[in-house]
Design a protein around this nucleic acid. Sequence first.
DNA 1: AATGAATGAGACTTCATTCAT
DNA 2: TATGAATGAAGTCTCATTCAT
Lengths: 205, 205, 205, 205
Amino acid sequence: MSDHSLNLKRLQVARPRSEEKQKALLRAAIEIFAEHGLGAPTSAIAKRAGVAEGTLFRYFENKDVLMRAVFDHLLDVSEQLFAESVVKSLPGTSQSQAVWDAYVDWALVNPAANATSNKLMVSGKLSNEQMARGMRLVDIAMEGLPLVQGLDLAHSIEFQNAICTAIGNAVIDISTPRPHLLAVYKRAGYQAMMRAIKTPESSES
Amino acid sequence: MSDHSLNLKRLQVARPRSEEKQKALLRAAIEIFAEHGLGAPTSAIAKRAGVAEGTLFRYFENKDVLMRAVFDHLLDVSEQLFAESVVKSLPGTSQSQAVWDAYVDWALVNPAANATSNKLMVSGKLSNEQMARGMRLVDIAMEGLPLVQGLDLAHSIEFQNAICTAIGNAVIDISTPRPHLLAVYKRAGYQAMMRAIKTPESSES
Amino acid sequence: MSDHSLNLKRLQVARPRSEEKQKALLRAAIEIFAEHGLGAPTSAIAKRAGVAEGTLFRYFENKDVLMRAVFDHLLDVSEQLFAESVVKSLPGTSQSQAVWDAYVDWALVNPAANATSNKLMVSGKLSNEQMARGMRLVDIAMEGLPLVQGLDLAHSIEFQNAICTAIGNAVIDISTPRPHLLAVYKRAGYQAMMRAIKTPESSES
Amino acid sequence: MSDHSLNLKRLQVARPRSEEKQKALLRAAIEIFAEHGLGAPTSAIAKRAGVAEGTLFRYFENKDVLMRAVFDHLLDVSEQLFAESVVKSLPGTSQSQAVWDAYVDWALVNPAANATSNKLMVSGKLSNEQMARGMRLVDIAMEGLPLVQGLDLAHSIEFQNAICTAIGNAVIDISTPRPHLLAVYKRAGYQAMMRAIKTPESSES
DNA sequence: AATGAATGAGACTTCATTCAT
DNA sequence: TATGAATGAAGTCTCATTCAT
């Protein structure tokens, strides 16, 4: 009996055999979600990935699991991106600017990934762990920036993260349809962000 | 009892199309969309509004029309809000701060409206006219703010609107789950916004 | 107050159940059924008739009743048509040709009536009495024609009615989209019909 | 067990799209449309075919496509019927009579097919290609019949097709409820048709 | 393990009919 | 009596998921 139920369980649980197919499905999901929203049919994702409709469910138990896997995958990419950007940063630029550039550039080169990431963030489908992981990533990206003052520490970090992320996304949003202005907006956006979080000495005088 | 013309008008229609029901449907749609996303069934909206499923379609030809009507309604409210906020602004505060306060306060008091508005903005269901109207509203809200420099005029307005809107929404997003910090974040957010768009040159003097 | 209500009351009484509205509804139903099939919404009929949706159901208990009323109305018209056509028939033409001409001409002048009549005939919505009445009308129209031979009487009548009706409708069907050929087809059709029912023996003599 | 190539073919598809189900759906549609009209629900067709409601739409994109497929199927059958009837025609009978007999017999044996075909012809749901194909079939069936005179060629063919089709359908209509009279009506109908289109020499004398 | 046919719940929408005015 | 707003059953079609092959 126990043997039996174990067997069934094993059959039901997604047992990916090919890493390649899993990647193809994630890539396809990112594209399809970006193009048609999270309500797009799983069959469209399977087709884009070049696999059968049913195959998707051998790799991802159901659509919600797929969505969360997509988000995890995008965070993996982002984390690696940030790590690399710091290492590669040019001597003349600060670490924060290296991360900023890397993030904005990546979003412009991977518009589907950026779009799907944003859709997932507001979908209500992510787990608390994933939300936390997302925030941690922002924490890391913000490392090295001077903290805005006038708030206690916890609130200050939270606040600064929110502001900086928002400005970054805003720059990406307006640059996406006008790639020729990317350099201008990227620079201006970075400066605006730095000013926004600069400690307001003058207000204390 | 009431005046004559009203009485006559009433007699001409069997049951007047109830303004109340239309409002109830819009309110219900705002709530349901906020809670369950734009993919929520129309039947849920009808039920929340306390009308039959078919009744929804007497007031709104189909779901897309309903969505656009919801957006128009929210813009109506926002426009009025901005107009009033300027009039009511306290002597000591600038116009821009009055609008800022009004916007943040409204979003916190009407979280569903704010959430649904955001969802609609990225839904791809709005008409070009509606997108334009949304941007015009932001233009109006930004009136009186000094323009960030270093960009030509058109790009500058665009850029500034994007940055300011983003910061505003960020403040709303982090304040929503922590209402007791609203005052702090609202103040800090306003200052951050003003710094972000401050002319760069002045900081070098 | 009493003055007022009395006035209104009188206005309502001055609008009795009107023969005119009933006729308008029948006319509208004929048109709408012809244009959009028997599945067309009753609301479209009411609108075409210039009355409210609910008013239709004060004149016709439900849609099936309306359909049957339409058919009865069309038979009324046909009966009168046949009666008049005999009276008016020119000296040189036989009675059968007079009826034939009247029928074909009428169908071409009233395409909607003809189309709706045909649709109703195959709708399965008519009562047995109505089907019988329809056949009786054909019997009357056929009066005076020599009976095809080689069949016993009952079958012969039945057969001849079917053939003649079919040829008549065929002529109408091909003439409707080509009104300029009406005269040609009408004549040729009549001759074909007369030949079709000519006693076979006579051709052998 | 079976031969190799079949086995290999089988392995490539999970479950082959069953020809049998498609046929069952077409058959069910023909029956249901005949019994309840073209407005009958697709769910009734699926149930009659013994498949789930959704399965119908895997085989036919939507109801209109199903209707057109039904018509194409019926024309396929008719074309084959006509071809066979000519081949099988007895030495003593003319080709035209063979076709006539085959058509009438077929309609009586397949009343649902005949009824549905007629409904589709007047439904306005068929494509122009299908209407043309239907007329071409009649042309073929009429081949070999002497053309009625007194009209120019084009109109003559059109006219004759209409008359002959009409008489054929009339015979079918009156025979269907009285199968024991089929032979009589079939014979009499054929003779009536031949007389109807016979060149009227006498009128020229 | 992979496939894709099959399933059926549920979405949106229509419309005959009822009923408050 | 006339009106037309309200109703909800029923229709078409979609799609996440299961399952036979």
